[in-house]
């Protein structure tokens, strides 16, 4: 069996950390073996861990009738599912049409440059994850980004970078206080 077939190459896309598998036992029990609930189970698994750990998906395959391939297939099809842990701040950059014509691309570029990452990645210090999202639905405030549930509207590249800088400062100060 080559590396591809055994899934070695493929599994490199997934981050695997030691997670407490017992946390998802109630979820698996709740949905039981009834058909058609794979997406619900994965959504709740992500709520627990913040992402879908490989060991969690393997455990799910073991405990239910779903094949591993089916589970990975669903996990990689939908944009909501993350295969890697996220940073302290999740920056969702709206890529809707209204945001696009009002300059979201420039805003995104400035944010990515400030953090030195690409959309979809997390900064090395684990503080920020940047993601592109389809539409946050606040089109009249375009361009918009949402950080941990709070929306920031009418952005300019400068304004967005300031928000990021302020959050970073706050996080670093918080760390010092804790120490």
């Amino acid at each position: 069996m080559c590396d591809n077939c055994s899934g070695v190459e493929f599994k490199k896309n997934f981050r695997d950390e030691k997670v407490n598998l017992e946390l998802i036992t109630p979820v698996i029990e709740k949905y039981g073996k009834s058909k058609g609930n794979l997406i619900n189970v994965l959504q709740e698994m992500q709520d627990i861990y913040g992402y879908l750990p490989l060991s969690g998906m393997d455990y799910l395959a073991e405990k239910t009738d779903n094949k591993k391939a089916t589970i990975y297939g669903v996990a990689t099809f939908y944009t909501q599912f993350r295969l890697n842990p996220i940073g302290k701040y999740l920056v969702l950059q709206c890529q809707g049409t209204a945001c696009h014509v009002n300059g979201s691309k420039e805003v995104s570029k400035a944010i990515c440059k400030e953090l030195d990452i690409k959309p979809g990645d997390t900064t090395e210090d684990g503080l920020f994850t940047v993601e592109d999202v389809a539409c946050l639905g606040c089109c009249s405030l375009a361009p918009v980004m949402m950080i941990n549930g709070e929306a920031y509207g009418n952005l300019t590249p400068g304004k967005a970078v300031k928000v990021i800088k302020d959050l970073r400062k706050k996080a670093l100060e918080g760390d010092t206080n804790e120490n």
């Binding site: 058609g36 609930n37 997406i39 619900n40 669903v74 939908y78 944009t79 909501q80 389809a134």
Partner: peptide, 24 residues
């Protein structure tokens, strides 16, 4: 039933696949 973020699931037959817990 909560969708999981796939534009194609707005198409009715893809939506049905997704309702069944599969790739849309």
């Amino acid at each position: 039933k909560k969708g999981a973020g796939a534009f194609v699931c707005g198409e009715e037959t893809a939506l049905i696949e997704s309702l069944e817990g599969k790739r849309g």
